[in-house]
Every structure is written in structure tokens, then in C-alpha cells.
Design a protein around this nucleic acid. Structure first.
Lengths: 156, 156
DNA sequence: CATTACTTGCAACCGAGTATCAACTGGATT
DNA sequence: AATCCAGTTGATACTCGGTTGCAAGTAATG
């Protein structure tokens, strides 16, 4: 199996261990799943993938591990505009925050980095004297493909 | 009872009726609650307030009416960083989008309008050819008061 | 005021996430 | 390598926000 092109596997594991956290078989499995995911996964999907590796893993353990990662700022939790129910999605926190755009028609999620976004965060910290820990910018609307395919829809 | 200073009451009602929607006693009550709210309310709070006016209103009707308002773009749904569970909060959609900042210590919600935010949305529409319908920018961190009161906390 | 499509209230349901607690185990200590 | 124990796990039951199905009720139209 080819390694993910973005980063060496085991970074999340290394990060947690460097913080003195116990590395169990289950955690290693779940971290591996999160680390190698190519799309945004919800807790149920993470559980399913983890069980392919370790069939006895419980969903409670998945939730607990995700909370652990959240508390340590190693994953970001996304709503993706609640396009399909109330579930949450997870992704490894990137170096640079990005925006998630969710198409209300086709459901496609697009990511976008922007200098303006970085500057906006700077402005918030400065003008509001607010120390930012985490941000979540989600946009709902119609993507380029759906706008051309269904032009009427784009103006709704 | 003094009228809310921000806007004439009944605007939501008028908006819905102009779209040909049936105006029931229950809807009028719920719209009134949403319209005159000074803070962000969740569905349960809206139900409680609506029941003070019409004690037989059912929570299902509240959820249905909120969905109606959402579909018509008349209210925005907020997570407020899930500081206290998974509930959603609602506010009348303002003319100009704003940012919600949630303090992870004291729970205070602060709103912030920004020219940079408006420009960022313009950039998204232009560069991504994405037609924006709704945006949600939420920021978690530590507010000015908590930073001065608990300086150690601000660097966590 | 008769009609009818839309809306409501009730009850049952659903699914994501959490609490509890006995059994288990990573990893530090010897 | 055997011991120890605080931290972790899995099973179960639970909470809670929100939805569905359906019979009864009602707003708006003529």
C-alpha cells in the first residue's frame, strides 16, 4: 500500500506519545485511520475502518480517542453545514487553516486557503483582544459545476 | 411592553406571508419569540418561551418552523463551537454576516463584523466560482477578560 | 360557509454521543 | 522478566436533539 503523499505516517502517534500519553493498540489503530484518510470521515466511518484492522474496537473508544485528539488540537471537528444529519467530521489539523465549502446540491466539499482568511484571524486577535485557539469557517452554496449544470438553482 | 429597538416586529411574519406561506397561530408565536430574542436561543429555549404565550405548542412545531425559516434564509443556525452539547442556536439573519467568537473559559459569545470577512466572501465567490448562500465563521479561544484574569490559560 | 391542502400534536422512533463500571493493560519500577 | 497501578477498554444503558407517521384540526380560497 502506498504511503500517503502528504506526511509520514505515525506523526499523530508521535505527537501524542511526546505528550506522555499511553499508546494502546486501539489508539494506534484509530490514529492510523485518521492519519491516512483521504476524505473527511465521521465517527461511524472511522469505527468501520478501525474494525477492519482490529475487529473488537468499540465505538466508545473511537469517540474517546477523537475527544483526546480534539483536546490536544491535533484534529479539527467539522460540521460541513450539516448536509447529511448532525454527524461531525474529522481531519488532521493542518499547518494553515482552510475554509470548507459545501455544495448544497451535489454535496461536494471543497477546501480553500486564503491570505485574507489569515489576515482576518489576525484582525480578530488584535481588534478583539481574543486569543484564537480554533476556527471554523464553513460556507454553503452552489459549486461551479452545479451552477453551470443547473443555472436556475444558482440564484435560489 | 417596549418594542425591540432594532426593527419593527412582524418582519419575519410579513416575510413569510409575502412568500405565500400559511400563517398559523403557532407560527406567529414562534416567529415572535425568535424576532424579539436578545440572545441566541436554542430550540428548547424557543419552545419554553413560545409555551408561555401558547401552552399547547409542541416541540415538533418549533423544529418544523425553525426548518422553514432556515430554508427561507430568514434565520441562521449556529453551533457556537458546541460549548454546551450539540444543540443549535438561532438568530434572525442580519443584513451583514458576522463572526461568532466563543470563549472556551467563560462561554461568552461575542459578535464581530469585519470588512475583511466581506472581502473574503467576495474572493471565494470569484476565485472558486462558488455561489455563496450561507456562511458560518465561528472562533473558539479566550476572550480579553479571561486572558487578563487567567493569563496562563491564554497560552494553552 | 364549504372545500381542501397544509399544518398541528401526539407518540413512537432515530442516531450521535456520554456515563458507569468491572476487567484489562501499557509502561515504569524493580 | 515479574510486579504494580493509573489509565484505558468494552459492554450496557442511557441522554438528548431532532425526525417520522398519521389522524385530527385549521387557514386561506372561492
Amino acid at each position: 500500500m502506498p504511503l500517503p503523499e502528504t506526511e509520514a505516517p505515525g506523526r499523530l502517534q508521535a505527537e501524542l506519545m511526546s505528550r506522555g500519553l499511553r499508546m494502546t493498540r486501539q489508539r494506534r489503530t484509530i490514529l492510523g485511520v485518521v492519519e491516512t484518510a483521504k476524505q473527511h470521515l465521521d465517527a461511524a466511518q472511522i469505527l468501520r475502518r478501525a474494525r477492519k484492522i482490529d475487529p473488537n474496537i468499540d465505538r466508545v473508544t473511537v469517540y474517546r480517542t477523537l475527544n483526546l485528539l480534539k483536546r490536544h488540537g491535533l484534529v479539527d471537528e467539522l460540521d460541513l453545514m450539516h448536509l447529511e444529519g448532525e454527524k461531525h467530521f474529522y481531519e488532521r489539523r493542518p499547518q494553515r487553516d482552510h475554509i470548507h465549502m459545501a455544495c448544497l446540491r451535489c454535496g461536494r466539499i471543497t477546501e480553500f486557503e486564503s491570505d485574507l482568511f489569515d489576515r482576518l484571524k489576525g484582525q480578530i486577535q488584535r481588534d478583539c483582544r481574543f486569543h484564537i485557539v480554533v476556527t471554523r469557517l464553513e460556507v454553503g452554496g452552489y459549486c461551479a459545476q452545479c451552477r453551470t449544470a443547473f443555472p436556475a438553482r444558482a440564484s435560489v
